[in-house]
């Protein structure tokens, strides 16, 4: 069942925007091509925040939200302004602004994070207090910028970009929350001194990544 859904997302599938294909894309990015465990993106905040389960959940939710917002937004920037020939609607078919891509993406991500921060502060001060310092830090999370860059590289259509934004964020959240629960258990373990902390976290992440890789076999 899972395998057939993932296979749905193949390039040979005639309708890449159908529901089945989008569900397949979601599952693929949640498990097989997990943005953290397969592409190593967002490691810094992952290592720093996975010490406590509640803050891991908070950051995970915030990342899903920002990713879901910025990937479709950057899709629009790329397809209507930056890509070669994208300015044809404005009467400039020869313009190629692709070299401004990094700058535009990072600026739109920083702006989106700022807006989300203000919105959360206004409408849910409780959630704002819970997320605390993590919200502004999302702007420099590699997973967010990486998501947008992958979206360009893989030539997604708009429905695919929306799905990808959600799925890659959710995959990141899944990885950090499961790691936080494992580290909670590791606290009571007898780990050799120099391996404690960072070293054992890497090795455990390696084992988790290996477990996730088994999904690609089905």
């Amino acid at each position: 069942m899972l395998a057939s859904l993932i296979a749905f997302q193949d390039a040979s599938n005639p309708n890449p925007n159908g529901i089945g294909a989008l569900v397949g894309l979601t599952l693929r990015n949640l498990f097989v091509e997990n943005i953290l465990l397969a592409y190593f993106l967002g490691m810094c905040s992952y290592l720093a925040v996975s010490k406590r389960v509640d803050s891991a959940i908070g950051l995970g939710v915030a990342v899903v939200f920002v990713q879901f917002l910025t990937v479709p937004m950057n899709w629009a920037f790329h397809n209507y302004i930056l890509a070669p020939g994208a300015l044809a609607w404005a009467g400039l078919p020869d313009t190629d602004l692709i070299y401004l891509e990094f700058l535009t993406f990072i600026a739109s991500i920083a702006a989106a994070t700022q807006v989300v921060e203000m919105a959360v502060d206004k409408f849910s001060p409780k959630l704002y207090a819970a997320l605390g310092i993590f919200l502004p830090l999302i702007a420099v999370n590699c997973a967010i910028l990486g998501g947008s860059l992958f979206m360009v590289q893989k030539n997604f259509t708009f429905p695919q970009a929306v799905t990808y934004g959600f799925a890659s964020g959710a995959g990141w959240a899944l990885a950090i929350i499961s790691m936080a629960t494992i580290r909670w258990k590791l606290r009571t373990a007898q780990v050799p001194g120099p391996l404690r902390g960072l070293g054992i976290t890497f090795i455990t992440t390696g084992l988790v990544a290996m477990a996730f890789m088994t999904f690609s076999g089905i």
Binding site: P192, G193, P194, G199, I203, G206, L207, M213
Partner: peptide, 26 residues
């Protein structure tokens, strides 16, 4: 060449570096 190998390898390098420099967390 796959992801898990990289994670484990970096974990081991950190272990070696910290054993030599004598640093331990907490």
């Amino acid at each position: 060449v796959l992801a898990p190998g990289a994670f484990c390898l970096l974990g081991i390098i950190v272990w070696i570096q910290r054993s030599i420099s004598g640093y331990a967390e907490k």
